[in-house]
Simulated assay, not measured.
Amino acid sequence: MSYLQKNIESSDNAAAFKSDTLILGSSLVYKDKIINDSRPSLNGYKLNQKPNKLRQDTQGSEYLNFDSEFARLENNSKAIANNSTTVSTGGNNNLKIDASNVKVQQGVKYVTIKATDFGSWGSLTIDGVANNERIVITIDTSGVTNFSTGWLNLNNGENKNILFNFYDVAQNSNYTGNIEWKPSSSNAINAILAPKATFTLVSSNFQGNIVASKIINRTNTNTVASYGDVPVPSETSITPTSKIISVPDVDFGSHKLGSETSLVGDWTGNFQVSGKKNTQIKINVALTQQLTSQNGSVADGIHWQLVKNDYSSGSLITTSQDFTNISARINYWIWKDDGTGNLLSDWKYNNEKKQYGSYNMQISNLDTVTEAGDYTATLNWTLVDGP
């Protein structure tokens, strides 16, 4: 089935709909025949085949509400990314995913790999996924606005079907950049979930489903094959195997009104967690009480951000998450043999050595505070999942 709601564009004055049923929006004009041509037309474009079944929306009644559907898909993309386990791929070109230690959720393993791991060619192999299990791969597009798979071989020996989810983990938001899809030699049925991105299909080997804000097809590939639905993971579907031992305070020091509008806070105390070595712990930080003075005056104009400084690429990349109204996410790797880690100690080391990542907190709009006094705020730390 094909559903075309608003408009159609074609570079060669012809369009192909390979499905049996065609559903049109109310504003589109379909003609069964073109003058001196037996083919039908749609808004003046010739159709390469005549649909066996034709339906059309009536004014004010739509077969599908794209706004609500895309909102649902954007939430699904976020839920998948936030409940996936980050795994290493071993570097550029020949990417290898070992999902052996990834928790199975309703028959699916959800993993995250970095967009920056992809090269211009190579292959993708996946281990640790049983024949009766499926895999969903979130491609973390943090710091990336243009992504390409390169000429990647997706055969993986077994032609396993994969759902690829594109998400900006650092910003905890849907990816809005460009995707160039070029994999070769894939006989599998795959799916693309990138509801806010521009997706360009270059590979003629693709078959499956594509969800994107804009799709550019540079091939004559047949994309009719359908990728089956997978369950969307939820926070409650994961049983934590890790725990938070202690959480820190954040000290912004003494501040005189009018001298600055933005301050970076220093961590004080301990920030300890425990979990399995060489796995990632995801911690949400939320503002549960805005800065409030001793006499009850609330600084409700102040904005809060979690700022990440990351040297893992060889140079400093800084990203931020605003958590004035929604929670922000901290990703931390457990690396000690005893399965414990002190985030503040590790972040201090990373800053000194200029490697890996660390987090600071920043408050801004301080010029909105009009009443002098000592202000305190309350933050809530929550372990999202145990890898």
Rank of each mutant, 00 (worst) to 15 (best):
K196Q: 13
Y167I: 09
R134P: 01
G269V: 03
Q59K: 13
K46T: 13
G265I: 11
T145V: 14
N36K: 12
T112G: 03
T292M: 05
L154Y: 02
I189S: 02
K196N: 09
I137R: 02
S120R: 05
P233F: 03
T378Y: 10
T236S: 15
N187C: 10
T241K: 12
E180G: 10
S259V: 14
R329N: 10
V136N: 07
Q321H: 09
S315G: 12
A99F: 11
S203E: 10
D140Q: 05
T116E: 09
N101E: 10
G107V: 10
G119W: 09
V264Q: 09
I283S: 04
Y167K: 05
S297Q: 11
W304C: 02
I192L: 08
K103R: 15
I210L: 08
T176C: 04
Y375W: 12
Q56T: 02
G143F: 05
A170M: 10
T21R: 14
E9R: 09
N284F: 14
N284D: 12
K354D: 09
K276W: 08
G150Q: 02
S41M: 07
D346W: 08
G128T: 01
N132H: 08
G341N: 02
L316A: 06
S262T: 12
I363S: 01
S142G: 06
L316M: 12
F147W: 15
T236P: 00
L4K: 08
S11H: 13
G265T: 04
S274L: 11
F118N: 00
T378E: 13
D251F: 13
R39N: 09
T241L: 15
N178R: 11
A328D: 00
S345Y: 10
N309K: 15
A377C: 06
G253L: 04
N7M: 13
D140K: 06
K114G: 07
T288V: 15
W181S: 03
I317S: 09
K354Q: 15
N174A: 03
N365K: 10
V369T: 04
Y227S: 04
N131A: 11
K308D: 05
T261I: 14
D127Y: 15
K31Y: 07
D140R: 01
G357A: 11
I302C: 05
A71N: 11
K33L: 05
D300C: 06
V211D: 01
N159P: 09
L95G: 02
Y227N: 07
G341C: 04
K96Y: 13
T125H: 07
R134C: 01
V144T: 12
A170H: 06
G157H: 03
S204Q: 12
N209T: 14
N270H: 11
G107H: 07
R39F: 14
G386Y: 02
K354H: 13
L257H: 04
L343P: 00
L124C: 01
A225C: 06
I215G: 09
A99Y: 00
N365Y: 12
V87E: 00
M361S: 01
K277E: 14
S274C: 08
N350D: 07
T200W: 06
D374H: 10
D12T: 12
S204D: 14
N161H: 03
K33N: 07
D310S: 03
N351T: 03
I189A: 07
G258F: 07
